[in-house]
Design a protein around this nucleic acid. Structure first.
Length: 624
RNA sequence: CGGGGUGUAGCUCAGUUUGGCUAGAGCGCCUGGUUUGGGACCAGGAGGCCGAAGGUUCGAAUCCUUUCACCCCGACCA
């Protein structure tokens, strides 16, 4: 009883000795301007006054480690599937990442604006992306019957602005960006914040009079992105990516390698080249020597619409099967043939179609085209019925194969490419249309695979959007032209999730100091008045040094505070305890290391402030 | 959108197969006490429309129908 009371009295007594600035703030600011007040409140951080709801149990619906820890550490809570509430600690992390991104963008001369999240549907109809984006595009109709889009990206909005404001080559180049909420009506949100419906993205759009200028800005952004990810303390890999329906000629993706990544990175064994799997090229497989093959033979394969079922009937291996997929492009049918053990890469098809939107044909269209149920399509007799036919090198290289008979419940064997279906023709093309797989090579070099989280991507868009939205400027030669565009995105939330994915141990997050919610936590271990007083002192001194510090002033046991500090991943912990205090010392521990060092209590704050600055400098002064 | 799974206390989950006493445990929360350097202990307490709606039954968390939400696999994805 007595001890608790003493402790409470000690706390309340110290609370009344708050720094003068704070008292002044509460007394409606005598002599303090608004920004000073905000600064003081932002830095004045007591655990007991902050909503950091840590939990011991792993949340049932969190599958991957970053999701689990972000919930457990009290960074966020789920509001609905794919939407999260960011709590104070999470908000602080987002704010820090945003600030880094903003600084690096501004350094390149990009200008920050804010675009509405709700945008007119007509703009999206003009560029054709209402259709291309499909159901992922969030839409609603307002009370006036107008269609609205919840912006998943903002090419339309920025190009609209350019169309109205960029009239002369003298205004070019121009690079505009925003850091704003994006919405995508994902079929399946998952992995916590890695694939959420609502997220924060930095998106920039640049406008140029010529290709060289676009390239220059593109490379500037590329470098700025390197700096951003280095400052955030992330290990990252840059891969060549597909620009797909975004249109345009070039793209790089910035990915953080980790086991839970959704993207697959393909790289050569010598580590010289890397691609997203959508883009990774493969060498054609060696052509099989021609064999003596009898005529095509029907084979009864009831209900064997799947590769493995058909193989079982015909006693062949998947790599001997020719898989025929039907895509559509407007009204026309597109055939894509790959081996049974390979997968069609739609991005590669899109590129062969010059960026035209394609999608899987529906059942009705397949039945109409092949006169058979889905699963029994084959190239024999079908190639002249399709607008375009793409045959993978792997198929063309087969000496003999089996495939669908274009007749329900039948396959055919002894099919020889070039004999039983054409490999050449006006509408026919043998090409690389499949995903790379284990064992493939490129330019003779072995291809290797790893998973990664995409945290940023840069694109060259060309004039796709400026043409569609009639954005024209007058060039030096007096003629009207369409500016070339680049676009550049960074997933703010994903930076945090990937930092957690690669920075954690069994006790919780281990965060880079540049994005951790606080730089230092001061933990009084014990409720004795002198311990609390010493902790308060160090806390005040750190505040005065400009360090972002959290004081764990809770009336809790030491163990609880240590567990929470570890969970939160705060890079530096200063512990004030009875024993060390008696020796005039405080203890300093880095979250990333197990050793502790003791510091004289009188100089502890100054020394820790120096360490904070050194740690930050290490990340904030990138090599590039 | 196809396949699978789960909805019971703030959280993690028993109980449902085989309907039956007042619906449980651990953690968290509140009160009091003992503690206080790695998620303490004792005692007491609050907290539930058993996801929702209909049905079967003397009786439903439990059986049936419908529906909603969430999760996983797949498809999809600048």
């Amino acid at each position: 009883m007595a001890a608790v009371c003493a402790a409470r009295i000690a706390w309340s007594g110290l609370l009344s000795k708050q720094p003068v600035g704070v008292r002044c703030a509460r007394n409606s600011g005598q002599g303090c301007n608004q920004s000073t007040l905000q600064m003081i409140f932002r830095r004045f951080m007591r655990y007991s006054q902050t909503l950091i709801p840590t939990v011991k149990e792993v949340p049932a619906d969190a599958e991957i480690i970053s999701h689990q820890l972000m919930i457990r550490a009290g960074l966020m809570r789920k509001l609905a599937s794919g939407t999260y509430i960011y709590l104070p600690a999470g908000q602080r992390m987002l704010a820090k990442v945003i600030q880094i991104v903003r600084e690096e963008m501004n350094r390149t001369g990009a200008q920050e604006i804010i675009m509405p999240v709700v945008q007119p549907l007509e703009l999206w109809q003009q560029t054709g992306r209402e259709v291309d984006y499909g159901e992922t595009l969030g839409k609603f109709i307002d009370r006036h019957g107008r269609g609205n889009v919840l912006s998943p990206t903002a090419e339309e909005g920025f190009t609209f602005l350019a169309a109205n404001e960029i009239k002369s080559y003298k205004q070019l180049p121009m690079n505009l960006y925003q850091i704003n909420t994006k919405y995508r009506d994902e079929f399946r949100p998952r992995f916590g914040v890695l694939r959420s419906r609502e997220f924060i993205m930095k998106d920039a759009y640049s406008f140029h009079a010529n290709e060289e200028c676009l390239h220059k800005t593109y490379m500037n952004m590329y470098c700025a992105y390197c700096r951003v990810f280095e400052r955030c303390g992330l290990e990252y890999v840059i891969v060549l990516a597909e620009s797909g329906e975004m249109g345009g000629s070039g793209s790089h993706q910035f990915t953080v390698p980790c086991a839970n990544g959704e993207d697959i990175i393909v790289y050569t064994a010598d580590d010289k080249q890397a691609w997203n799997i959508e883009k990774a090229p493969v060498d054609p497989l060696p052509k099989q020597p021609p064999a003596q093959v009898g005529p095509v033979e029907d084979f009864y394969t009831p209900r064997a619409g799947k590769i493995e079922d058909a193989c079982a009937y015909m006693k062949v291996k998947p790599h001997q099967l020719i898989k025929t997929l039907v895509y559509k492009c407007g009204e026309g049918a597109i055939l894509a043939m790959v081996r049974g053990d390979h997968e069609v890469n739609p991005e590669k098809l899109t590129r062969l179609m010059d960026g035209v939107h394609i999608e899987m044909a529906d059942e009705a269209m397949i039945v109409e085209l092949t006169k058979a149920a889905v699963g029994f399509a084959g190239p024999v007799g079908l190639c002249d019925k399709a607008a375009r036919v793409f045959i993978d090198h792997g198929v063309a290289g087969l000496a003999v194969g089996a495939t669908g008979a274009n007749r329900t419940d039948y396959h055919i064997m002894n099919v020889v490419p070039g004999r039983d279906f054409p490999l050449e023709g006006a509408n026919i093309q043998v090409a690389d249309i499949r995903n790379a797989v284990e064992g493939d090579t490129y330019e003779g070099k072995k291809l290797l695979f790893k998973r990664g989280i995409e945290v940023g991507q840069v694109f060259k868009l060309g004039d796709k959007y400026t043409r569609k939205l009639e954005s024209r400027y007058v060039d030096a030669d007096g003629r009207e032209k369409y500016p070339l565009m680049g676009c550049y995105g960074i997933g703010i939330n994903r930076i945090i999730a990937s930092a957690v994915e690669i920075g954690h141990d069994e006790n919780g997050m281990i965060l880079p100091i540049t994005i951790a919610p606080w730089e230092v936590i001061v933990t009084p271990a014990g409720q004795e008045a002198d311990v609390i007083a010493a902790a308060e002192n160090i806390y005040s001194e750190l505040l005065a040094e400009g360090v972002e510090v959290l004081l764990d002033d809770r009336d809790a046991r030491g163990g609880v505070k240590f567990k929470d500090a570890d969970l939160l991943g705060i890079p530096i912990r200063i512990t004030v305890g009875k024993k060390t205090l008696a020796e005039g010392k405080a203890e300093c521990k880095l979250r990333s290391e197990s050793d502790r060092t003791t510091l004289p209590i009188s100089s502890a704050a100054g020394e820790v402030a120096r360490r904070v600055k050194a740690l930050k400098a290490k990340l904030n002064e990138p090599k590039r």
